[in-house]
Amino acid sequence: MSANTKIVVLRRKELLYTGIFAALGVLFVILLLMLLLPGKAADTSGTPDSPDSTAETAMPDNVADLGRIPQSAQTEDVSTGAVADADAVLDNASGPVGTANTYIPGIYTTELILGSETVNVEVIVNDHAITSLSLADPDETLTTMYPLLEPTMDSLSEQICETQDLSQVTYSAETRYTSLVLL
């Protein structure tokens, strides 16, 4: 019986590297399992799950708060997010009947991007009606590239100021796409 002694030499540096890589491997497997396995992911963002949710959301800066009108009397245009008073009846001489103010008076602008050019659309409103819609300082290159832009805006402005209703706006087949972009 001879004793064969085997001597194993472990270096501290190799043990340290092995331990670090083993810990990183375990951490990687745990993270991979958390990402791939379905779990109880609670939505903590505060956004409602469905459009008919009753949770109150914050109004954007460019939308007027019409809190004085009861929710049952408001109608919302889903395409634009605009809120209008359903009980107000438009009277051309004196504005809406039965309401103090329908709009917050002011000049509102938004930027419209057409290709590589931009143009500002300006809407002027008083307490009771939209008084003017126009293109604010259209560039010469823009009017050259889009020749129907200004005449179409003038036509839409006339109709909107007269009827105060976007659903009653009409346009020809020639200006259909330009009108839709502007609306």
Score class of each variant (00 low, 15 high):
residue 107 I to Q: 14
residue 93 A to S: 15
residue 109 T to C: 05
residue 99 T to G: 00
residue 92 N to Q: 13
residue 45 S to D: 14
residue 110 T to M: 08
residue 44 T to L: 15
residue 99 T to W: 02
residue 85 D to H: 01
residue 87 D to C: 00
residue 71 Q to L: 11
residue 99 T to N: 03
residue 108 Y to F: 15
residue 42 A to P: 05
residue 108 Y to W: 08
residue 64 A to M: 07
residue 63 V to D: 01
residue 68 R to G: 02
residue 66 L to Y: 07
residue 65 D to A: 09
residue 90 L to T: 04
residue 72 S to M: 08
residue 62 N to P: 03
residue 97 V to C: 04
residue 86 A to F: 03
residue 56 E to S: 09
residue 102 T to W: 05
residue 75 T to L: 04
residue 43 D to K: 11
residue 68 R to M: 04
residue 59 M to S: 13
residue 100 A to M: 00
residue 99 T to Y: 07
residue 78 V to R: 14
residue 63 V to Q: 07
residue 40 K to A: 08
residue 40 K to H: 13
residue 62 N to M: 07
residue 47 T to N: 12
residue 86 A to E: 08
residue 60 P to C: 05
residue 62 N to T: 10
residue 94 S to K: 14
residue 105 P to V: 10
residue 64 A to Q: 07
residue 60 P to E: 02
residue 94 S to Y: 08
residue 111 E to V: 07
residue 83 V to G: 01
residue 87 D to V: 03
residue 48 P to T: 11
residue 98 G to F: 07
residue 100 A to C: 01
residue 76 E to I: 15
residue 87 D to I: 00
residue 53 S to L: 11
residue 85 D to M: 02
residue 42 A to C: 05
residue 103 Y to V: 01
residue 59 M to P: 05
residue 75 T to C: 00
residue 49 D to Q: 11
residue 59 M to F: 11
residue 82 A to S: 00
residue 46 G to P: 06
residue 77 D to C: 02
residue 113 I to G: 01
residue 60 P to H: 02
residue 40 K to C: 06
residue 96 P to W: 14
residue 62 N to L: 05
residue 64 A to S: 06
residue 100 A to H: 01
residue 110 T to P: 05
residue 80 T to F: 03
residue 45 S to H: 05
residue 60 P to K: 02
residue 40 K to N: 10
